[in-house]
Simulated scan of single mutants.
Amino acid sequence: MFTLTTAAADQVLKAAQQGGTEGMSLRLAAFQMQDGAIDYRIGFDEPTEDDIRMSCAGVDIVMTPEQVPLLDQTTMDYVEMEPGQFRFIFLNPKDPHYKPPTEV
């Protein structure tokens, strides 16, 4: 199952409001690179009949059935990477470059 942290959900909802895409679903996509790493894509989109649909922390999420194996067990977070620089990150134990977060 895919999950969003509260910080990620808040930022997704804020972005939808600012971008005029309120009510649209967050579409997730993941692609396995040659080195095994996983590349992630997100954007607002309308669901299709074939999509897998879920809701997490107040955000409607859609993905194609083909995306499920790569995104299962993944958590999307919104974190400050450096002072004042925030971005979405994906914590996925299936990614060979995954390192579990540590407390700071």
Results as ranks from 00 to 15, higher is better:
45 D>C: 03
36 G>M: 11
88 F>A: 11
86 F>Y: 14
37 A>V: 00
47 P>A: 07
56 C>T: 03
47 P>D: 00
72 D>E: 15
96 P>I: 10
28 L>R: 05
6 T>N: 01
19 G>I: 09
75 T>W: 13
71 L>F: 11
55 S>N: 04
11 Q>K: 15
67 Q>H: 05
62 V>N: 11
94 K>D: 13
10 D>S: 12
67 Q>W: 01
78 Y>Q: 03
87 R>D: 12
61 I>D: 07
33 M>T: 04
55 S>K: 12
10 D>W: 01
92 N>A: 06
24 M>E: 12
95 D>E: 10
49 E>N: 02
99 K>D: 02
92 N>S: 15
40 Y>S: 06
23 G>L: 02
56 C>A: 12
37 A>S: 13
6 T>H: 00
15 A>I: 04
2 F>E: 02
81 M>N: 08
30 A>E: 04
45 D>P: 02
97 H>L: 11
44 F>I: 00
45 D>S: 12
14 K>T: 03
34 Q>Y: 01
97 H>W: 10
10 D>A: 14
46 E>A: 13
68 V>I: 14
18 Q>P: 00
81 M>L: 15
46 E>N: 13
68 V>N: 12
6 T>Y: 00
90 F>Y: 15
58 G>K: 01
63 M>G: 04
19 G>R: 03
59 V>F: 02
36 G>E: 10
63 M>E: 01
41 R>A: 07
84 G>C: 02
25 S>M: 07
15 A>E: 14
61 I>T: 06
52 I>C: 08
19 G>S: 01
76 M>K: 06
67 Q>K: 13
70 L>N: 10
67 Q>R: 11
59 V>C: 03
62 V>H: 11
42 I>S: 07
85 Q>G: 05
94 K>V: 05
81 M>I: 15
77 D>S: 08
49 E>M: 07
14 K>C: 07
90 F>K: 06
16 A>P: 03
39 D>A: 07
82 E>W: 12
59 V>D: 01
27 R>I: 01
99 K>C: 03
67 Q>E: 15
69 P>C: 11
21 T>N: 10
81 M>Q: 12
74 T>S: 15
13 L>I: 09
63 M>N: 08
17 Q>P: 00
